[in-house]
Amino acid sequence: MQYTFLLYSNPADFADMGPEDWAKSKAAYQAYIAALQEAGVFVATDWLQPAYTATTISLKDGEARVHDGPFADTKETLGGSFTVEVPDLDTAMDWARKCPAAQTGKVEIRASAMNG
Rank of each mutant, 00 (worst) to 15 (best):
Y3E: 06
E63M: 05
G40N: 15
W22A: 15
E76A: 03
R65E: 04
A92M: 05
A102Q: 00
A54I: 08
I109R: 03
K75D: 01
A34T: 11
T53W: 12
N115L: 04
S9H: 07
A12E: 12
A27M: 05
D90M: 02
A51D: 08
A72E: 09
L48R: 12
V107N: 02
G62T: 02
D90R: 03
L7G: 04
A92C: 08
T91W: 00
Y8N: 06
C99G: 04
T53G: 05
V43D: 07
T91V: 12
D90C: 01
A39D: 07
V66N: 09
D16Q: 14
Y3D: 05
A102F: 00
V107E: 01
T45A: 12
Y8G: 11
Y3G: 04
T55W: 04
N115Y: 13
V86Y: 01
A64H: 07
G105L: 01
D73W: 02
T74Y: 03
A92Q: 07
A12R: 15
V41R: 11
Q2T: 05
Q49D: 14
D46P: 12
A31H: 13
P87K: 10
K106W: 02
E85C: 10
L48F: 15
R65M: 02
F14I: 05
E76V: 01
L89W: 11
A23E: 00
E76T: 01
T45M: 14
G80L: 08
I109V: 12
V43Q: 12
A102T: 09
I57R: 04
W95G: 02
D90S: 11
T77L: 10
Y52T: 14
P19Y: 01
F82D: 05
P19Q: 08
D88M: 06
F82K: 04
D68L: 06
F14G: 01
T4P: 08
M93A: 11
K26F: 15
S58L: 02
A102D: 00
